[in-house]
Design a binder for these strands. Structure first.
Lengths: 211, 211
DNA sequence: AGAGTAATGTACCGATTAGTCAACTATGAT
DNA sequence: ATCATAGTTGACTAATCGGTACATTACTCT
């Protein structure tokens, strides 16, 4: 589904996001990005003052254009909490499957991969942005959990605690999926694990055969 | 407590492990390692044919010298399973605290950080070694869980499943600790989470004040 | 003591890195 | 039409990368 003529800037953002996701920030050079996007280096630095700025732009725009609308849909107020969580788990798995098909490997969470890599002085700015993005994601989770608590839909008391538990759990599954290049953990444990953390009924789940 | 005259080779291994742990493989150059270890480049390549070989040696030796004896102690056959798990959780937290004091930040799991970064063609060998190392760690976990199952100490049936769940869970906590530079998740959720996964009694835990 | 080898030190290599620069072209408003 | 501006291009830099070559030093065995 390639949109026709995405514009140079957008091509750079998308290409960089892809390349970094399937390998790492450090191992993808500006030349790599330019080559893959079919853009000359001069144009790169016309749009972005540095490689780090492109990465940050990629994060912000991916969040604003993909993640934010997605969260608003999944956690829409009219959907019951248990269903929100089910949908959330399903869509994570689906995204990972799609990426696996597209790139030939399990990719995990791009923010976590980047955040882990960019530890240390040189990566401060990017690392801070990763934390900020994670924070924004957690805000959506927190809103959903808070209203579930208010509605007595779950027993939990501290929404922040549950958000952290949930996020840490999900990140673990995605990270190990990335490292071991397998969806096993996500397929088997994601949904029931999330339900268990939140004190929701854990349904016996039927796994779709992987294609 | 620096041992006197560690030997050039060992200094390289230890220094590289440290530097890579607190930043990343890609952002640490051979020159960085040599400078920090006070070793000349010629000596580096006398002991290791490449940077990647040093990283692999560091993983293997860290496992053989630190991790393996540690696992044998924690999962010693005469220790009750519930206690094994408690000790395991405690020691993970302690290791993270120690590293935090030493390096001024939460470092998380070095294998996971490296494994996530080394995805992609260029990192195949290192990535495979990370998987191998994780596999060896899981073997110890599996042995402990299997005998707990055999002794009816826990309800679980499939040891492999529990090992995966446990490993994914722990990795998630450590990874988010690294990314967000906080021990909150590990301090609050590690032990009860492990106990819950394994169907063990979840004790109310008293948290040590962080120093 | 002397020979062989292990270890060290220094100077170097070509390739690659992020980033610069000035010339060029397309565009759009007046 | 013209003029400023946005966008593009390819050649360029200085620094750094992983790795090599080779001479020198230290150690060990006889």
């Amino acid at each position: 589904m390639p949109r026709p003529d995405k514009g140079t800037r957008q091509k750079l953002v998308d290409t960089a996001a892809d390349l970094i996701w399937i390998s790492s920030y450090g191992s993808v050079s500006v030349d790599d990005i330019c080559r893959a996007a079919n853009v000359k280096k001069g144009s790169f630095y016309h749009y972005f003052p540095s490689k780090a700025d492109l990465a940050i732009a990629a994060m912000e725009e991916h969040f604003a254009e993909d993640l934010e609308p997605y969260f608003q849909q999944v956690f829409a107020a009219n959907v019951p909490f248990a269903q929100q969580i089910e949908n959330f788990a399903d869509s994570i798995l689906e995204e990972q499957r799609t990426a696996q098909e597209k790139y030939g490997r399990v990719c995990g969470c791009p923010l976590a991969a980047l955040g882990s890599e960019m530890i240390g002085e040189e990566g401060q700015i990017i690392s801070a942005k990763v934390q900020e993005m994670f924070g924004k994601c957690q805000d959506y989770l927190k809103a959903a959990i808070s209203s579930a608590i208010a509605a007595n839909a779950i027993e939990a008391k501290d929404a922040d605690e549950k958000v952290r538990e949930l996020h840490d759990f999900i990140t673990g599954l995605m990270m190990m999926g990335r490292i071991n290049n397998t969806l096993d953990g996500l397929e088997h444990d994601l949904k029931p694990g999330m339900q268990r953390i939140l004190g929701l009924a854990v349904k016996q789940q039927i796994l779709k055969k992987s294609l």
